[in-house]
Simulated scan of single mutants.
Amino acid sequence: MFELDMRSRKPIYEQLVDKMKELIMNEMLKPDEQVPSVRTLATELTINPNTIQKAYRELENQGFIYSVKGKGSFVNPNHKIKDLEKIKTVKQELEKLILEALFLGIPPDELIQLIQKLDGVKGGGERND
């Protein structure tokens, strides 16, 4: 399914959450599709089942999966979650790039002009200028 970086400073359960979210957002895991059981995934990745359970609990809290007692966990078909998570990720990436641009000396006015230029090319988003 995927690999985890055991040498990373990021906790294994967080890596697992990120990988599962990526699979869901990229529709590799379809809505209402059953995700691997805790035992199966723990065996496949050779990690503690408690780590998998913690990751699944976090995914459920974030609304990416839901559990059915006695049946397992499934991908949540709610598409709004996918959009909200993608928007959050894009904003975080943009923030890093903007800070880097400012650090390198690009004036804020120039960044604003670039955004306005790109907005005009794209078609204006929600505004109808």
Rank of each mutant, 00 (worst) to 15 (best):
Q113N: 14
I87K: 14
Y13Q: 10
G125C: 05
K88F: 05
F64T: 02
L4H: 01
L41V: 05
N50T: 14
G63I: 04
I87R: 15
N61K: 15
Q62P: 01
Y13W: 13
K117I: 11
N61Q: 13
E85D: 12
I52M: 08
I98S: 03
R9T: 10
V75T: 08
N61G: 05
P11L: 02
S73M: 07
I98C: 01
E100L: 09
V90C: 03
T51Y: 03
V17D: 05
I112E: 11
L4A: 02
L4G: 01
E100V: 00
G120M: 07
N48E: 13
A101M: 09
D32N: 14
A101E: 05
E95R: 09
V38M: 08
E44T: 14
D18G: 02
A55M: 10
I24M: 11
K80Q: 12
K21E: 14
I106D: 02
V35N: 04
G105Y: 06
E58H: 10
L111G: 01
E22R: 11
S8T: 01
L23H: 13
L94P: 00
T43L: 11
L45D: 00
K96W: 00
E27M: 09
T40Q: 12
K80W: 09
E126P: 00
F64N: 05
E93R: 12
E60M: 14
E85F: 12
T43R: 14
N128R: 15
K21Y: 02
S8F: 00
G124P: 05
L29S: 05
E3P: 01
I106H: 02
E58M: 13
N48D: 15
L16N: 05
D119I: 10
R39E: 06
Q15Y: 06
Q116T: 07
H79E: 15
I106A: 08
S73T: 03
L102Q: 07
R57E: 12
R9Y: 06
E95M: 08
G125W: 03
V75Y: 10
G63T: 00
P108H: 03
K88G: 02
E14P: 01
D129Y: 11
E27L: 11
G63S: 05
I12V: 15
I47E: 04
T46P: 00
E126F: 13
N128D: 12
L84T: 06
I115M: 09
K122I: 09
T43V: 13
T46Q: 14
L104F: 07
P77S: 09
G70T: 08
L16F: 05
K117Y: 14
N48H: 13
L23E: 03
P77D: 10
N78Y: 08
G125F: 02
I98W: 00
S73D: 01
K19S: 11
P31R: 08
L97N: 06
K80F: 07
I115H: 04
G105C: 09
E110S: 11
Y56F: 13
P31Q: 10
K96T: 06
I65Y: 04
E93D: 13
I24D: 10
L104Q: 14
M25W: 00
A55E: 06
I112R: 07
E27V: 10
M6L: 13
R57H: 12
E110K: 09
G120E: 13
N26R: 15
E93P: 00
E100K: 11
Q34F: 01
S73G: 05
D109M: 08
V121G: 01
G124Q: 08
F64I: 00
L16I: 15
T46L: 11
N76D: 09
L16A: 04
